[in-house]
Simulated assay, not measured.
Amino acid sequence: MGLLFKKTLVAKQKKRILRLEDEMLSSHSAILGLEKKIAEMQKATNSYETADRNLKVS
């Protein structure tokens, strides 16, 4: 009886761990996506600033 209870408890804990790992992967994926967008926006802003400087110098 005790072995069955322990086995059930371990199975529930494994499911919980897998669910939390999936949640963490999803969160990390979202963070990386946002960081990519920020980098792209900064790159675009820098290219516009460079173009503006070139126009002012000319």
Score class of each variant (00 low, 15 high):
residue 12 K to T: 01
residue 6 K to E: 05
residue 33 G to C: 11
residue 38 I to K: 14
residue 43 K to Q: 15
residue 58 S to Q: 15
residue 52 D to N: 11
residue 2 G to H: 07
residue 44 A to G: 04
residue 21 E to F: 00
residue 52 D to K: 13
residue 42 Q to R: 14
residue 54 N to A: 09
residue 22 D to Y: 00
residue 48 Y to L: 15
residue 42 Q to W: 05
residue 37 K to R: 15
residue 10 V to F: 07
residue 20 L to P: 00
residue 31 I to S: 09
residue 1 M to K: 06
residue 23 E to K: 07
residue 13 Q to W: 01
residue 57 V to G: 02
residue 11 A to K: 09
residue 18 L to A: 07
residue 36 K to E: 14
residue 14 K to A: 08
residue 52 D to M: 12
residue 10 V to G: 00
residue 37 K to L: 15
residue 43 K to M: 13
residue 7 K to I: 10
residue 42 Q to V: 04
residue 31 I to R: 13
residue 34 L to Y: 08
residue 48 Y to E: 07
residue 55 L to T: 06
residue 38 I to E: 10
residue 14 K to Q: 07
residue 36 K to L: 14
residue 46 N to L: 11
residue 27 S to Y: 04
residue 24 M to G: 00
residue 48 Y to C: 06
residue 43 K to F: 13
residue 48 Y to D: 06
residue 17 I to E: 04
residue 40 E to D: 15
residue 4 L to P: 00
residue 53 R to M: 10
residue 53 R to Q: 13
residue 54 N to F: 02
residue 5 F to G: 04
residue 11 A to E: 08
residue 35 E to S: 10
residue 57 V to L: 14
residue 36 K to Y: 09
residue 30 A to G: 08
residue 21 E to G: 02
residue 14 K to L: 11
residue 45 T to L: 12
residue 41 M to D: 13
residue 16 R to A: 09
residue 5 F to S: 10
residue 11 A to F: 06
residue 19 R to A: 03
residue 7 K to A: 10
residue 6 K to W: 03
residue 49 E to L: 15
residue 42 Q to Y: 07
residue 44 A to H: 11
residue 51 A to V: 01
residue 55 L to Y: 08
residue 22 D to R: 07
residue 20 L to V: 02
residue 28 H to N: 10
residue 44 A to Y: 11
residue 39 A to M: 07
residue 24 M to D: 07
residue 42 Q to G: 09
residue 13 Q to S: 00
residue 47 S to Q: 14
residue 9 L to D: 05
residue 23 E to I: 07
residue 33 G to L: 12
residue 58 S to I: 15
residue 4 L to D: 11
residue 6 K to L: 04
residue 29 S to P: 00
residue 27 S to A: 14
residue 25 L to R: 10
residue 3 L to F: 09
residue 27 S to H: 06
residue 10 V to T: 07
residue 44 A to V: 09
residue 10 V to M: 07
residue 44 A to N: 13
residue 14 K to S: 03
residue 12 K to G: 01
residue 9 L to K: 07
residue 51 A to F: 04
residue 25 L to N: 12
residue 44 A to C: 05
residue 48 Y to S: 05
residue 30 A to M: 12
residue 39 A to S: 13
residue 16 R to Y: 03
residue 51 A to K: 06
residue 34 L to P: 03
residue 15 K to T: 02
residue 30 A to T: 13
residue 42 Q to P: 04
residue 7 K to G: 02
residue 39 A to W: 03
residue 2 G to Q: 10
residue 38 I to H: 11
residue 33 G to A: 14
residue 41 M to R: 15
residue 49 E to G: 03
residue 45 T to V: 08
